[in-house]
Simulated assay, not measured.
Amino acid sequence: MNPPTRPLIPEQRHQEILRLLRREGVLSIRNLTDYMNVSHMTVRRDITALEELGQVASVPGGVRLADWTSQEPPREREFRAQLELPRKQAIAELAAQFVENDMVVFLDAGTTCQSVVPYLGGLKNLTVVTNDFYVVTSLFAFPNVETIHTGGVVDPSSASSCGRIAADAVKGINIDLFFLSTGTWNMSRGVTTPSLDKVEIKLAALEASSSCFLLADSTKFGTVSKFRVAPLDKLDAVVTDDQLPREMQESIRELGVSVHVAALPSRALHGTSGVSI
């Protein structure tokens, strides 16, 4: 973060705090005092003013955006499957446009990657590798798609498998395109996950793939989990929805990562389509 070169008036500080929070998700009071070179009390007053406007929420020792959460998302598959369906479907439809005939594609475990499956049926000589049991059963409707499940230790809460066995299976496959999923991602920490076992298979797929696209909606941005998978600059592209702030899209681009933005259905009804940035 590059600090301001001159003192800021309160309104400027408020806008700067919001800008930083959109980038980082959560910031400590110490981060903000050091960055803006102001007192602890000044930062506290700024946070109080933003809280009264409903724009931020205090957390122990710091602050976060009011409309985003730094908590881990629910892990139970049945619950997650009902969350943000329009976003998932819009992202999945746009992501599927990058899949071509004769490819080997890895679909990571998760409901967003599962949403890609219906768009794959018309492709020829396609192979899908996955650790997600729901992806496998969804592909039963497309017998022309060759399906490989990685095996591994079963996680009932996510209906997927992970661990060393799954990772070793992935290492033996040449993957053209890896669709990576996550419930938590931000600029400073990249892609994270609550399970160390899931890190292993995600890293194996990343290593085995020619290209890696992160499929993650904007509601998950600015959040973080315990274990780090990869920084954003290790990705080739991010596929997200048009509610991710433009500034964040540009920040990701500056890392050398493409950003592909899917229009949400309400906007698509007015003639807006997914665009690449």
Rank of each mutant, 00 (worst) to 15 (best):
R13F: 14
H14G: 12
I17F: 03
R19S: 13
L20F: 02
L21E: 02
R23E: 15
G25D: 05
V26C: 11
S28G: 15
R30Q: 15
R30I: 12
N31C: 04
T33Y: 10
M36G: 07
V38G: 08
S39L: 06
H40A: 06
M41T: 11
T42K: 10
T42E: 09
V43R: 02
R44C: 07
D46G: 07
L50H: 03
L50M: 12
E51K: 08
Q55N: 02
V56G: 05
S58L: 12
V59K: 05
P60G: 04
G62N: 10
G62K: 04
W68G: 06
S70Y: 14
S70W: 14
Q71M: 13
P73D: 02
P73R: 09
P74R: 05
E76D: 14
F79N: 02
R80Q: 02
R80L: 09
Q82G: 02
L83D: 06
E84M: 06
L85Q: 13
Q89H: 14
I91W: 03
I91A: 12
A92W: 10
E93D: 07
E93S: 12
E93Q: 15
A95P: 06
F98M: 06
F98N: 14
V99A: 08
V99G: 08
V99C: 06
L107A: 07
T111M: 01
T111D: 00
T112W: 04
T112K: 01
C113P: 00
V116L: 14
V117C: 13
G121F: 11
L123K: 13
